[in-house]
Write a protein that binds this DNA or RNA. Structure first.
Lengths: 208, 208
DNA sequence: CATTCCATAATTATAGATAATTTTTAGAGT
DNA sequence: ACTCTAAAAATTATCTATAATTATGGAATG
């Protein structure tokens, strides 16, 4: 599978590293040495540095001047922080999206939800989950907000994968269905409060 | 005035360019040519590119691959978007900060408010305004949230400076005082709703 | 007048060298 | 044996020079 031709090398490296960090292949706190990564990708150190900058802005790595970058850790507090930010921003997005929601969009979201129910592993479930949220929120037409939410989803996914790697079973997502039902009935407030509660429960599921 | 010695050159360039963009010295849509900027700062193009990446993550410039970066424009819709995001995130931060607010912190905020009243130009007022918000919200202890809010403040400041450059008079800030009074009285909800309304009024003040 | 083609310019990436800083290693002294 | 200091190694950050890819603008052509 070849990556898009017109993407810069830095963007490709950034995406690959982000995927690895999210998947837990590189553990938190590990140093990322630019020369090694440059060699692995057959590139020079310049695009690697740019990829680092992008990962830093996503909160996946932290950079200390002259000391290199390392994979960001995440504490329980930070997981809660991300969950609360998601609750605040996703409800805002939903309220602005509601006037533009059509039946077709709601059907799309329901399909994504079903795909989540059918998921065999946590990665597939997360992909469907993210699709569900994105489909419902995208019609708000607020690009900056959507990008912020997307970065928070990425952070959430990291937590999800790190704690649940082994034991995981597909949860039939009751909340998603409740949100869809409320939206179909035109009950925006109920949908928004359900969404807020739903997002915050993710932060509460301790990985045991 | 020498900048901090241990900062990377990229960080210095980024800060300087950000200040110029916010101040309106570089107009929206203007191309930023890395070679020229590198020459101006006596640096090479590599740190300039890294500075661009940082500005991009702050939303101050947009980058099109192989076509360079240009100063981001901002529409009325975007100003409203930023205001709504600020309202959502600052109320969240305030609610989490309230348990940690001391009388000393509230006094600090009041002093910042007075400094705003004494401000002779919009830049000084903005600085005091930002200080007011930061003092009240910082005790929430949520670094990711605070950083996001700070970036939104930057975007707000751009709008403020662009529209009000010439004609501006110090508004005695009634909302700030109302927020402080509510906090002193332990009325968290009133403080939060006042803050939300206050932030959104900024987006409504049309220039001219 | 529209279209194609080419020259120019700018961005993006490579490679090697240099400086500065951090980390590690080794050694001296108590 | 332990600690503190000094030298060495490793890594980052930067610069210079150069090549390759892609836009942009204008000229030539149908």
């Amino acid at each position: 599978m070849t990556t898009a031709k017109s993407e810069t090398i830095a963007a490709q490296i950034s995406k690959t590293l982000a995927a690895r960090i999210i998947a837990g292949e590189i553990e938190a706190g590990a140093k990322l040495r630019q020369d090694h990564i440059a060699e692995e990708f057959g590139a020079s150190h310049v695009p690697v540095r740019e990829a680092f900058k992008r990962l830093e802005s996503q909160g996946l790595v932290v950079s200390e001047p002259r000391r290199g970058v390392r994979v960001a850790g995440f504490s329980v507090d930070e997981v809660r922080e991300v969950a609360e930010m998601r609750a605040a921003l996703e409800t805002l997005a939903l309220r602005n999206a509601v006037p533009h929601l059509t039946r077709a969009i709601l059907d799309q979201a329901e399909e994504a939800n079903r795909a989540g129910d059918r998921a065999l592993n946590v990665q597939a479930w997360e992909m469907a989950n993210r699709a569900f949220h994105r489909i419902l929120l995208a019609p708000c037409g607020m690009p900056r907000l959507l990008k912020a939410i997307d970065d928070l989803h990425t952070a959430s996914a990291r937590f999800l994968f790190s704690g649940w790697r082994a034991e995981w079973e597909a949860p039939t997502d009751r909340d998603h269905r409740a949100i869809l039902d409320a939206l179909r009935a035109g009950q925006t407030e109920i949908a928004a409060t359900t969404l807020a509660r739903h997002v915050q429960t993710i932060g509460q599921k301790k990985p045991k």
